[in-house]
Amino acid sequence: MQLESATYGDDIDQNAHPHMKARGPFSIGADDLSAGLKAWRLWTMLGWNDILQRYRRSVLGPFWITLSMALYVMLLGVVYSRIFKMEIALYLPYIAVGLITWGFISGTTIESCSAFVDSSGIIKQIRLPFTVYVFRVLWRSLIIFLHTIVLIIPIGIIFGLKFSWADILIFPGLILLFANQMWVGIVVAVLSARYRDVVQLIATAIQIAMFATPIMWPASSLGTAQIIAQVNPLYHLIEIVRSPLLGEAPPLLSWLVVIGLCAVGYLIAILLLSRGNRRIVYWL
């Protein structure tokens, strides 16, 4: 069976049309994923426009994100450093990086739930790879993340964080985090298009997970119960970004856990995308 739709732009591979041929349980989803990646010009544009849309008439624009995160981190940093009896120069950078990274994880996960539902008007008119709508959400969240992670510079200056070579590990860390959120986004987008309760379920889970993960408290405060942090994949996901920014190389285990998560996650995401491809539009 062949269906050659021409609504893809020049930079979208027309041969990757998901209806074209059924080669195996993964091929349709893999085609959608690669066609979606190739359409980067479209989703970066849509994602950026979403940000503009949100802040268009405000004076500070997207820097509201920076400002509100700065206030949030300052307040929590001061209060919780007292509660945990930690030195503020150690605690504030820790909680800042943790909260900012967590914001990216929770934001991408929750907003991806409505990726297809919010774009149902487009989906019912123009044939685009489904991953385009997920990547639009991710791009939007990445812009927000970049507007908040810059806070590490003034924080570093105030609290005397020194540059170390471990800082460079932030780049593979960020790439891995982004890659991980891509599969998470695809999975929750497909599932919540079909089952509308998934959004609520995930919002609840994310809220609880924030307190069960070492973000506001250091993993060391668990004492002998380190296992609580180590079995939590979210801990490792944060650690690959947080450690380098605080001047330490992340533990090898954290890298391995995230790479493993991605391997399993992409299998699930591509399988769901393959199975859902011909049905998603009918669920909207």
Binding site: M1, E4, A6, T7, H17, I122, K124, Q125, I126, V281
Partner: peptide
């Protein structure tokens, strides 16, 4: 919508060759 490629047929075959412009809602996006 089937011709536009957005409704995959649940049975049977659809073959559309050519660049399609589906003008259903022109204020799209």
């Amino acid at each position: 919508r089937v011709l536009a490629g957005v409704y995959p047929p649940t049975k049977g075959e659809v073959n559309v060759v050519g660049r399609v412009s589906p003008m259903f809602d022109i204020s799209l996006g």
